[in-house]
Amino acid sequence: MNEAWRYFLLFFGAAFVYNFLLIRFIGLCPFFGISNRLETSLGMSISVIFVMVMASSVCWVLRSYVLSPLGVEEFLYIPAYILVIASLVQFVEMVIKKTSPPLYKAMGIYLPLITTNCAVLAAVIESTRPGFMKLNIEYGYTFLEALIFTIGVSVGFAIVLVLFAAMRERLDMAPIPKFFRGAPIAFIAAALYSLAFMGFQGMFGL
C-alpha cells in the first residue's frame, strides 16, 4: 500500500466508515443536546475539530516521551489524558479570549462543554493506544498517522453534527405522532442517518 493511500484510508475510515456519532455512539450528549440549531452546531463543530486535534497531538507526545518510558502508562493514562484535555481547553479558551474576541464569541460557550465530551477523550485514547477500532491498518500509529486519524474523527463528527442540525430544524414543523414529539423523533432520525452511514461499511475494504 503506498503512503498517501494509507493516509487517505485512515482519514476516510475515521470520518465515515467508523463515524464516531452514528456508528460508534461516541459523543452523543452534545449531539442531541445542541443540535437544535444550525448556527450553534457549526460553532460546536469548529471547536471540537480544534480541541480534538490539539489534545491528541499533545497526548501522543506525552505518551511516547513521558508515560511510556517511565512505565506508568498502564495505570496513569486515564487521569493524565483527562487532565491534559481539561487544562488544554482552559488554555485555549484564555488564548482565544485575548487574541481574537470574535472567535471567542463564536466558540466561547462551547469550549468548557468540550472537556466532558467523550468524543475528545475517545479520539485521544484511540490515536495513542489504537486497537479498539478494527481498521485493517497496523496499530501503533506514528505521530502523522495519529494526527490524520484525529482530523478524520473530528471532521466526521462535525459533518454529522451539522447535517443533523439542518434536518432537526425542519423536524420542528413536521407532523409527528404525539408521543414521538421531541426527543424520540430525534432518535428515530438519527437511526435513519446511521442506516445511511452503514452504506460506507466495507468501502475500500475497511
Binding site: 452514528l22 456508528i23 455512539f25 414521538f180 426527543a183 424520540p184 432518535f187 428515530i188 437511526a191 446511521s194
Partner: peptide, 9 residues
C-alpha cells in the same frame, strides 16, 4: 447500529 437509536426512541 440503527437498532440502538430505534430501541431508545
Amino acid at each position: 447500529f440503527p437498532g440502538a437509536f430505534i430501541t431508545f426512541a
